[in-house]
Design a protein around this nucleic acid. Structure first.
Length: 269
DNA sequence: GTCGATGTTATCAA
DNA sequence: TTTGATAACATCGA
């Protein structure tokens, strides 16, 4: 989410109010929702009314009442470039803007999408079931949400977008380290003190990560191709075998719900 | 060459 | 209802 939020702020700054003159579709796979023809027909000639984010999905509201929903998944990029810049491999869509520049959708693994929805975007199926935004989550609401669970491990639950929206693999590891809770911990065993600390961790980790423009662990770059700086502050994510900054114990990595989870076996109970 | 890993999530089986 | 595996895909490093 901090990566998407970074791009949202930058895109809003650059393209709000501008016209999308034309669209070039190099690969139509990201257009899960429409044919190339329909996509071009509905997007070309529209103005960008506003740019928003919900969970990890970018919302570009168009002057026609339609919205673009853009999900970058693991390796998607949005880049703002001059037309004379060479088209890099893995560039799938090019939006030509009225300022003479281009917004390009690049995606190495091709998991990302650009869909069009009409009407209120929050009522689109992609957004309808999402939980509360992580950065807007109140402590009491967090307590209530947790109290509603009968079982389950804390890390996969934190990453469940229908439970809370916006927490991914990196940040779930970091906030659990902050709170001193093991990723495998059953949610029903959390003390109120731990819940308070975890809630604090959600806010602190995510807002710091947004401040540092996200984590460039592999392919992620922002709208201008710049890396995010938050990796410097990772305490556990991808630090397997390195000493815990608090106690020196080597950081452990396990597999959990198909994802890797990193933690300090001594600091996290 | 092979295997496992990679920031996500929809889908299907158990 | 919940959870766990798998798939979608390209690339990199061991």
């Amino acid at each position: 989410m901090p990566e998407v939020e970074t791009i949202k702020l930058q895109i809003k700054e650059e393209i709000k109010g501008k016209k999308i003159e034309s669209v070039k579709v190099i690969l139509d796979k990201p257009l899960k929702n429409t044919t190339t023809e329909e996509f071009k027909q509905r997007v070309e000639g529209t103005f960008v009314k506003d740019v928003k984010r919900r969970a990890k999905i970018l919302i570009i509201e168009l002057s026609t009442g339609d919205s673009l929903l853009i999900h970058l998944k693991l390796t998607g990029r949005l880049l703002y470039l001059k037309p004379e810049e060479p088209i890099e491999k893995h560039t799938h869509l090019v939006f030509n803007l009225s300022d003479g520049k281009q917004l390009r959708f690049w995606d190495l693994r091709q998991f990302g999408y650009v869909k069009i929805v009409s009407g209120k975007p929050e009522e689109a199926p992609e957004l309808r079931e999402l939980g509360p935004e992580a950065l807007e989550l109140g402590l009491d609401e967090f307590r209530r949400l947790l109290a509603g669970k009968r079982s389950g491990k804390i890390k996969p639950l934190l990453m469940n977008q229908n439970f809370i929206a916006g927490i991914g693999n990196i940040y779930s590891d970091e906030m659990l380290f902050y709170a001193g809770i093991q990723p495998t911990r059953d949610v029903t065993t959390l003390t109120d003190g731990e819940i308070v600390k975890l809630h604090e961790g959600i806010k602190k980790i995510l807002s710091a990560a947004v401040r540092y423009k996200g984590s460039s662990v592999d392919d992620y770059v922002d709208l201008y191709g710049e890396q995010g700086d938050f990796v410097m502050y990772h305490k556990v994510y991808r630090r397997t075998g390195k000493p815990c900054e608090k106690c020196g114990t080597p950081i452990k990595r396990i597999k959990l719900a198909g994802r890797s989870a990193h933690f300090c076996p001594k600091c996290q109970v």
